[in-house]
Design a protein around this nucleic acid. Structure first.
Lengths: 345, 345
DNA sequence: CTGTTAGCGCGTTCAC
DNA sequence: GTGAACGCGCTAACAG
């Protein structure tokens, strides 16, 4: 009977202490340590104290990978946002994190850089961690991604949008409708020669939807929606707004209001106007989207649409928790938006 | 001998497929599937194809929790930043993510909200996932946190600072020195009656260090550093800059330049000045810190210090990878900063 | 209130 | 090139 030496039988090396080590010191079994650390089981007061002392002495930290393998619950929620530089999605991520902090769930956060291919990769690598649920941005995914998602058998929540064919639950609003509301308000203010500044027409799905809302509203009012400039960059930076407004005014000098896909772009455009010696809103009015902090602080304030970025995060997390508790089922939750008229128009 | 039924013997329920399932279809053992999916082992071409087909057919996704329990490598790198709304730290997080994307490591990201207690909680919950390394912001941690960190036996990298007693490796710069450089430049520009706008004096360690650099520089030049306003909020928002500049000018009307802990605050201050009818820099000059995007786009541009937030992230990740490879050891890496004089001063 | 037993799904190690 | 056995550290299930 040869002494088969399989998988290095833990020699006297200083690897992390285990529950068994803690138990040895406290004079109990590993199982009792497990129960004591979980907190919701009956443990004799004295035993508990000895266990906690041993934990302290060893500096023991639970190994959750091992625990979740056994319990079949990882405690992970995955979330993917297009970017974290963009404060709108950062707010959503913060909302998710804070809502999750009340639970024992941990957030596994990724950002796709506005690419569905990158999103697919992220989904795959995150699913390897066996999250109990996944929160996505938007309703546009690769075929393979959709396949993996439905195969995973976990709640999926799409946010920031109202997909036509949702994978599962949805927490969001119609970007087209929100933009339409903005345009309506601007028409009411007396504007009629609208320009539109957007980013890449292929990657930024929400930007495209805003543009279709823009066109829809204008055609309803009988105005032209031809004055459009697209900057091929994603995500759009403030400085892109400067480039874009120059192009717009160059190609369509009669424009009386420029609507931008985001407040950041609008801000860049306003600053560029100042440099060009144009007064906003007197010579040209400018509106944004998203109600970033800068929109209210900037002077003049930027007319925009508040879309409750933070609330999208908390509501998505709340819906996720409900679905995991079996208290709630797949649903579509409408988040609020409202137009804010400020000094820039 | 009673039929003890332990741990639900996987009935015909639709739980996720395993390597064994894949192997069954492909006509090989689970072990061969493992090797095939790892990629770096010799597998007969035909076998490989059958395995990949089976993976596809089942929609099989590797279970990394199980894998890492066995291999003792989780593939996680943990990172904690004070906030993700603040684009400086968001840039660092992006730098880490992008540098890590080339490896097989996955980022476990948390934010402490500028609280060392919250940081301690985060460190504990992250260590439960057995990260292979951890990246922190700053050098200020609770005693317990330091204990857990050294106990964990993994590389620790502190960033954005030059701690006196680093836990392990460091990637950062001296906030005091950087601020001193800014003040020196402003003195050279002819300013002498300096004001300082900062946030909480207790939670924002880097803000405090900037303030001490501010005082040090001024005393070196023989100027007063008494003109100070602290807003008790963390993190500081743009709008806090407005409140603060009012207070500052109220209490110290002779101030000729206001130095702010961050560009966001500086921007808020500049906008408030505009509302008060003060011209920047004619009536009052204003400088920031961090070289946020807004500093270069805003009109006037904001004088500030660029501290390479993104580079801190990529370098920290690079150092981490080196340490994990045993190619590099604990080290202190200096990141660059440079003063940018713009129109606001 | 506590212990025993088994096994979560994989990778390590050795055997062929 | 491939397989068998074992165990990573923990918790479910049951027995007492």
């Amino acid at each position: 009977m040869p002494t088969k030496q399989k998988q290095q039988p833990a020699e006297g090396n200083s690897s992390a202490p285990t529950m068994a080590d803690v138990g040895r010191i406290a004079g109990v079994s590993a199982m009792t340590v497990s129960r004591a650390l979980k907190g919701n089981a009956y443990i004799a007061k004295g035993t508990l104290d000895r266990i906690l002392a041993a934990v302290d002495q060893l500096g023991y930290v639970l190994d959750q990978s091992a625990g979740s393998l056994s319990s079949r619950r990882t405690g992970f929620i995955a979330a993917i946002v297009p970017s974290i530089d963009n404060s709108n999605f950062a707010d959503t991520a913060r909302g998710i994190t804070e809502a999750l902090a009340r639970t024992n769930m941990q957030l596994l956060l990724g950002y796709s850089n506005y690419s569905v291919e990158r999103e697919e990769e992220l989904i795959e690598s995150m699913l390897r961690r066996r999250p109990e649920g996944i929160i996505l941005t938007g309703g546009h995914h690769t075929r393979k991604a959709r396949g993996m998602l439905s195969n995973a058998g976990i709640p999926v929540i799409e946010t920031w949008d109202r997909p036509e064919n949702p994978v599962d639950a949805v927490v969001g609003f119609s970007n087209a409708d929100a933009m339409e509301a903005l345009v309506d308000s601007l028409v009411e203010q007396g504007y009629s020669r609208f320009g539109f500044i957007s980013g890449s027409e292929t990657s930024d799905t929400r930007g495209q939807q805003r543009q279709s809302g823009f066109s829809r509203a204008l055609s309803r009012h009988g105005f032209s929606s031809e004055r459009r400039v697209a900057v091929e960059a994603v995500p759009l930076r403030m400085s892109d707004g400067g480039t874009a407004i120059r192009q717009l005014l160059n190609r369509f000098p009669d424009t009386d209001v420029a609507v931008c896909v985001s407040d950041l772009v609008a801000f860049g455009a306003i600053m560029e106007c100042r440099r060009m010696g144009l007064s906003v809103p007197h010579d040209i009015a400018i509106a944004g989207f998203g109600d970033y902090e800068i929109a209210s602080v900037s002077e003049p304030g930027i007319t925009t649409v508040n879309v409750d970025s933070y609330g999208i995060g908390t509501q998505a997390a709340g819906q996720m928790i409900a679905m995991l508790d079996h208290r709630g089922h797949s649903a579509t939750i409408s988040t609020n938006y409202h137009v804010l008229l400020r000094g820039s128009t």
